[in-house]
């Protein structure tokens, strides 16, 4: 690879559409309780934005925007957020059971609107954070990986 990344055509198109893909991913996450989609699908789409950046511009560009330490922390934050939402349901005043939908019990909201169904959108956001950062990390790990050959082997 003489020049980092792909041709200028790919780079230009990527520059145009990366924001649109990101908005689409966020939409899939936030409206997961109303339309098909949800945290996992939206998270994978968000990870694909950075995969696209890596493929088009090279790994330095995407790592500059989304550092691997930040990804690791977001991964843990997503998992913790999901757990905290679940454990808060155990509290007696909130419902007394694991994963009970305490927000929907106290404040149901109007169905078919964005602010409805209690903890479900929050869970979707947590899962999306987790999935996006972990899949991005998997991709970066596999791209950074090098194969070490033994002394007698040939590439």
């Amino acid at each position: 690879m003489a020049e980092k990344g792909m041709t200028p055509i790919v780079k230009t198109i990527t520059g145009w559409i990366k924001g649109l893909i990101m908005i689409f991913g966020i939409y899939i996450v936030l409206y997961g309780h109303l339309t098909p989609g949800g945290g996992f699908a939206g998270g994978v789409i968000l990870a694909m934005v950075f995969v696209l950046l890596t493929l088009a511009y090279g790994k330095e560009e995407s790592l500059r925007r989304f550092r691997i330490g930040v990804a690791s922390e977001l991964d843990s934050v997503g998992a913790l957020m999901f757990l905290v939402i679940a454990v808060l349901g155990i509290a007696g005043t909130l419902g007394g059971r694991f994963f009970i939908n305490y927000i929907a019990k106290a404040n149901p909201g109007t169905p078919f609107t964005l602010f409805s169904s209690g903890i479900i959108p929050l869970c979707n956001i947590a899962i999306a954070l987790k999935v996006a950062s972990s899949l991005f990390m998997v991709f970066i790990l596999l791209v950074l990986m090098r194969v070490i050959h033994g002394p007698g082997e040939r590439a």
Binding site: G38, P111, I120
Partner: peptide
């Protein structure tokens, strides 16, 4: 019961949320 218009999400994140936690 859940207020979620998408029944799949209602099952995944309310009725069967424990399963989703294991998946995560």
């Amino acid at each position: 019961e859940t207020g979620a218009a998408n029944i799949v999400t209602a099952v995944l994140l309310d009725y069967r949320a424990y399963d989703t936690l294991g998946e995560a």
